[in-house]
């Protein structure tokens, strides 16, 4: 039995799009294979240890996001950058991808410094990009359709040190114009896909868990699970985008 040590950043502030669903998927897909997830919450004022195998930061309301941003940059950014360089797995969703970048520029021009784990920056737009989102994502050399929902005012621009997670098939993605969605470097994924992301996309969950186990020094082959319900929910979400106006 292996143990994956997860650092959950700001679970009380950054949880608006059902982020606990993603944590539940990590926990159960490990448990069903005889492994264990150990979660440490890192709220405001906490300086996390850089040796966690897996890191998670979800989305929050603008007010909460503004409140945690300073704390993130000063108390957590350094540990997170070290962990990412060390090959830890990370998932940043929605507000998470924005705060994982260099800077978030708000509607009134205010600048929130991020954790600078991902080479990207985000500027708030005048409208929100909302709706079902389907992308073709590439992970570990494999390409698959990944589904979810997006709801963000931020327009995210990628730098040279990251690649997009995928290409938008249906929806808006990072900025509504580039056709790209998300950002990836090493074992770090940032994305606007919530819904939550992982229950309907167990392929992404298993990629992150495989990376986290490798970081934990216990590389194991994750045996396949019976994912029929996941597959059915995935298909329903893809079908949803072909009749979006019902």
């Amino acid at each position: 039995m292996a143990t994956v040590r997860l650092c959950h950043l700001y679970p009380d502030q950054m949880n608006i799009y059902a982020d606990r669903g993603n944590i539940a998927v990590f926990r159960q897909r490990l448990a069903w294979r005889g492994h264990r997830l150990e979660v440490t919450d890192a709220g405001p004022g906490v300086e996390p240890s850089p040796d966690h195998d897996l890191w998670y930061l979800g989305g929050g309301q603008d007010r909460d996001q503004t409140m945690v941003a300073g704390d993130l940059a000063t108390l957590k950014g350094s540990a997170m950058r070290d962990a990412a360089d060390d090959g830890a797995a990370m998932l940043f969703v929605c507000g998470g991808i924005q705060l994982a970048g260099h800077v978030y520029v708000g509607v009134n021009g205010e600048r929130l410094a991020g954790a600078a784990v991902l080479d990207l920056e985000t500027t708030a737009g005048s409208s929100r990009l909302i709706g079902d989102l389907v992308i073709e994502a590439e992970l570990d050399g494999e390409t698959r359709e990944v589904v979810g929902y997006e709801n963000h005012a931020g327009r995210t621009t990628l730098g040279d040190a990251v690649r997009p997670l995928g290409r938008v098939v249906s929806g808006h993605g990072n900025d509504g114009t580039s056709g790209f969605e998300g950002a990836v470097r090493d074992r770090v994924i940032g994305t606007y896909l919530h819904g939550p992301l992982l229950p309907k996309n167990p392929w992404v969950a298993d990629a992150l868990l495989g990376w986290a186990l490798a970081h934990a020094g216990e590389p194991v082959d994750l045996e396949p699970l019976d994912d029929r319900v996941e597959a059915a929910a995935h298909s329903a979400a893809v079908a949803r985008t072909s009749h979006p106006n019902r």
């Binding site: 159960q28 319900v229 929910a233 329903a236």
Partner: peptide, 18 residues
């Protein structure tokens, strides 16, 4: 429902046997 499978996943990952 239109998203019944999402609900089934909610129960599955909560630990309810599908």
């Amino acid at each position: 429902g239109d998203r019944g499978h999402d609900m089934a996943l909610r129960f599955r990952y909560g630990g309810f046997p599908v």
